[in-house]
Design a protein around this nucleic acid. Sequence first.
DNA 1: TGCCATGATAGTGACTGTCTATCAGTCTAG
DNA 2: CTAGACTGATAGACAGTCACTATCATGGCA
Lengths: 301, 301
Amino acid sequence: MNLRDLRYLLAVAEHGHFGRAAEACGISQPTLSVQLRKLEELLGVVLFERGSKTVTPTAACERLIGHVRTAVAEADTILGLARSLRDPLAGRFRLGIIPTLAPYLLPLVFAPLREAFAALEVEPWEDQTAVLLERLRTHDLDAALLATDVDGPDLASRPLFAEPFLAALPPEHPLAERQAVAEADLAEDILVLADGHCLRDQALAACGRSGALSRTMRATSLSTLLNMVAAGYGTTLIPGLAAGAAQDAGIILRPLSTRAGRTVRIAWRASFPRRAAVEAVGEVIAGRLRGFAEGAAAGAI
Amino acid sequence: MNLRDLRYLLAVAEHGHFGRAAEACGISQPTLSVQLRKLEELLGVVLFERGSKTVTPTAACERLIGHVRTAVAEADTILGLARSLRDPLAGRFRLGIIPTLAPYLLPLVFAPLREAFAALEVEPWEDQTAVLLERLRTHDLDAALLATDVDGPDLASRPLFAEPFLAALPPEHPLAERQAVAEADLAEDILVLADGHCLRDQALAACGRSGALSRTMRATSLSTLLNMVAAGYGTTLIPGLAAGAAQDAGIILRPLSTRAGRTVRIAWRASFPRRAAVEAVGEVIAGRLRGFAEGAAAGAI
DNA sequence: TGCCATGATAGTGACTGTCTATCAGTCTAG
DNA sequence: CTAGACTGATAGACAGTCACTATCATGGCA
């Protein structure tokens, strides 16, 4: 059974006239006659009584026509709804973001995203890298902003911007005298984030530390880490976008002599169909952060 | 858009697997892939994200799938309902019957009809010939039992049985002496039904009267007419099936010397599609009344 | 009785749904 | 780490079906 034939049926019922119904359907009268007869044969029921001047629905047709109307209406709803869903830059876009990035990046990019794609409802989801990748693979996220490379053939990614690390020092720290700090110098009394934060591993790697730390205090958030540094518990490396928050906390920032940093990327499933949305969101973020690396390094003196 | 493709969509959503969905639909996997891709192109929306091991509905698909289910369910309802409507010997059958026949015929044929076609709901409608023909033409009746010929190319009819007229006499009437009565003898003090009853014209014609009657009393029903005859107001002709009722009223019945009578026919629109129901109902009635004419004539002595 | 209106039929061409055969990519196991 | 299995996509061939034009059959009307 074909939806087209059901539409023909409705047209004949409405017009009570094969010729006019055919015209309304944009087909020829013979086509309508043939198709309707086929439908009648398929259903095993005569749908219309053809009089010499009138075409009247049979009792069987009266019983069926309500369901026919519903089916056709649903089909039209599907078509209309699909049309409204057609724009990949519209609808929900679930974007994962790592915790050391979210609080500092989102304020910068929310407004531009909203401006550029009014119909795109960006829903941020803050979690650590491993969780984000898992949720990406289970279709619970559409894309994720990470500071690590992603591997596996099921995921793809693209770099958005480079974010330099900065040395974060307590106000009275001896290293604050210098214009730039060597990472190895920080290793002595460095504070790091809790397990699972990519920034933890990156900071340790930058300082040449393997992993085992004497310090037992590990901050669960970058905000806490900043407070700890400001209180004189030690030093740390922070990502450039957190510079403002660090300075607000009374922390002294110095560029690193090696210009170490991390690259923020957007990652997505290779099979994700709304590729355009990913590209668009990535482009807005990259555009907003263009030239940020140099500015951040220069500003932290 | 095709209902078939919507079914394919549901199958893929249910199985999450093209091969198994294709098997469930009874088609090959390539066919399913091609058709689903076409549907996606038609809708302008990607419906499934094809992973290496998984097939997952997209957000757009989730939005659409409810309507798809409804449309397909309605289509199935139409097919199922049509199947149950397929039997022409089932459902309502609106049967018009003239008033001089209905009270005497229906008690005879209702049980046989019900027995023969349990699913056929025969709805009798009692009215005069002209009204029945009108209602037949306006599709308010499916068939009609008449005692006249029908003409016009839009109507068809078939004789069911012959019904002899009988002379109906008051108990003390002089004609009651005879074995058979000549119609002309009745003309003197004949009583007839009101205008519009075919029996009125037929009775008058049988008696050789043109139309203008001296009598002003005209019965509106055969039952009333019988009461009038029984009360001695005059004589009349009655159809054979009313013999029982007439005798119950104390009326003397005599066969007519000319064996005049009427033929009861079933009439229907030539275009009426449930021809089988008409034939079946007609055959049951004719069968029930087979041999009635002779019996009635013989019994009225 | 001839003309108009209406739906049915015949014959034909184009499209489309389906098949089999095959490919490309990913995952798994020895 | 490579061979094989699994999954969906693609290619080419064929058949069924939908659509058209031309024409017919019938009934109503002037």
